[in-house]
Structures are given as C-alpha cells and as structure tokens.
C-alpha cells in the first residue's frame, strides 16, 4: 500500500502544502485536484522520492526512492524520447527493469501499427498512450499520473479519459493522479482530494459538489466547507 504521512513542502518561502496524509491501495486510484501552481506536480515528485520535504512516503513500509524502482510515472508531455520510435521508447523500459512483450503492450494501447513511428509523427493522445504502454511495461506497484491529458483538446481528452478508466479498472497498481479537471478526477478515481494552494491545506472532496465549491467559492466562503 502507498502511504504518505504528513507530507509538507516549502518553495521560495511559500508553503505549498503541509500535514498531507493519504493512502492508496493496490488497484485503487486517488486523485488530487487543484489549480495550476498549487503544488500538485511537486507533491507527485515528493511522493516519488525526487524531492526532499517534510514527512514520508512509503510502499509497504519501505521509504520510496527512485533507486528502488517502485514507481511508474506519466508526465504531462508524455516524456518520450524524440530520437526513438514508439517501439524503442517502450523497449527502453526493459532496460529499467521492465518486462513483458513490447508488441503486446502496444496492442493494449492500440498502437501496434504505429510501432515504427517517431513521437513527432504522433498526435498528443497517441503520445500519451505510448507513455502508458511504457508504464505498463515497467510494471511497478505505484503509478503516478501528472495531468497526463492536460495538453489534449476536449474531445481527445474525453476519449482518453474513458480509455484510461478501462485500463485502470483492470490494473493492480496504486495510482495517484493529479489534475485540475473535476470531471477527470471523479471519472477515474475512487477518492478525490483538493489541494488548496492559497492556504496550503488538503481536503477530501466527498462528491462533485464539494469539489466544485472548493474551486468556485474558495475566496468568497473559505470557512463554509472547512
């Protein structure tokens, strides 16, 4: 189980978040909602062990560090290497401890026919799919998703969200997703939290209405939902 206890992070004298605790079980997806610049990506990097801050994040009691290779990660821009083909990008995961049949993973994300294409010849949605194929190849217990569809147009984004929903339903990974889309968070995750960049607080959203209020009424009625 992914366990984050009392995480906190200061950047340039500003506290992005503090006393942030959450758990994600295998096969479960937790979403963290927040506006741009509230520290969502920083939080993911701290969970991955890339950034040092307050608190601890661990997997089954073991403190997470990149060297332990416990996490898969899909960033906003997919993080593909431009000089490698789709096949080679996924195959590179094998050198990072990944396993499985590359063609099978490409088949799973619907990109078998695009295996020999370079990332520059792919659409944003296809690039995201390659990043997911790489993540599946790595087969790590934790999957961190940093707004993987943020750069896509509304229609493609919706298609990709539905596609990912199906993928996550059969996944055994503990998935932590950060996003600024309420729709995306509630479609993909079992539990949704709101990271409030203005007062560094972290609140659970019981339902969509709560999340919408956090987003829309934050400045006007800060205590209403406390």
């Amino acid at each position: 189980m992914l366990q984050c206890i009392d995480l906190g992070f200061d950047y340039n004298g500003r506290t992005l978040y503090r006393d942030l605790s959450l758990t994600v079980s295998p096969g479960e997806t937790v979403a963290i909602l927040g506006r741009s610049g509230c520290g969502k990506s920083t939080l993911l990097r701290q969970v991955a062990g890339l950034l040092e801050g307050d608190g601890d994040s661990s997997w089954d009691g073991i403190r997470i560090s990149p060297d332990l290779r416990l996490t898969s990660y899909v960033p906003q821009d997919a993080g593909l290497l431009p000089h490698l083909t789709v096949f080679e990008n996924v195959a590179l995961a094998a050198k990072l401890g990944g396993r499985g049949d590359i063609t099978e993973h490409l088949e799973q994300v619907g990109l078998r026919d695009a295996a020999s294409r370079y990332p520059s010849a792919l659409s944003g949605g296809m690039r995201a799919r390659v990043a997911f194929a790489r993540a599946m190849m790595l087969a790590r217990p934790i999957l961190l998703l940093d707004e993987p569809f943020a750069s896509l147009d509304a229609r493609t984004r919706s298609e990709m969200q539905n596609w990912l929903q199906q993928l996550l339903q059969t996944s055994e990974m503990a998935t932590l997703l950060v996003t600024h889309s309420i729709d995306e968070a509630f479609l993909l995750a079992e539990h949704v939290y709101f990271l409030d960049g203005t007062n560094a607080s972290f609140k659970r959203c019981a339902d969509r209405t709560a999340a919408e209020k956090y987003f829309g009424l934050l400045e006007t009625f800060p205590d209403e939902l406390a």
């Binding site: 991955a48 890339l50 990660y73």
Partner: peptide
C-alpha cells in the same frame, strides 16, 4: 535535454549513466 524528460527518467529509476547514454547525448547530437 528538457528538464521534464530528465525528471521523468529519474523517477523511473534511470541512473546518471543511463540518462547520459539514452537522453543527454542523443539530445546533444
């Protein structure tokens, strides 16, 4: 090499030499 790409591969557990070979030098070509 874009910072986001480097960060991605560090999180994925790539060593310094791995990044030099697969990320940094190909980007430097």
């Amino acid at each position: 090499t874009p910072a986001e790409t480097s960060r991605t591969f560090i999180i994925l557990g790539a060593t310094r030499m791995f990044r030099l070979r697969h990320l940094d030098w190909p980007h430097a070509l």
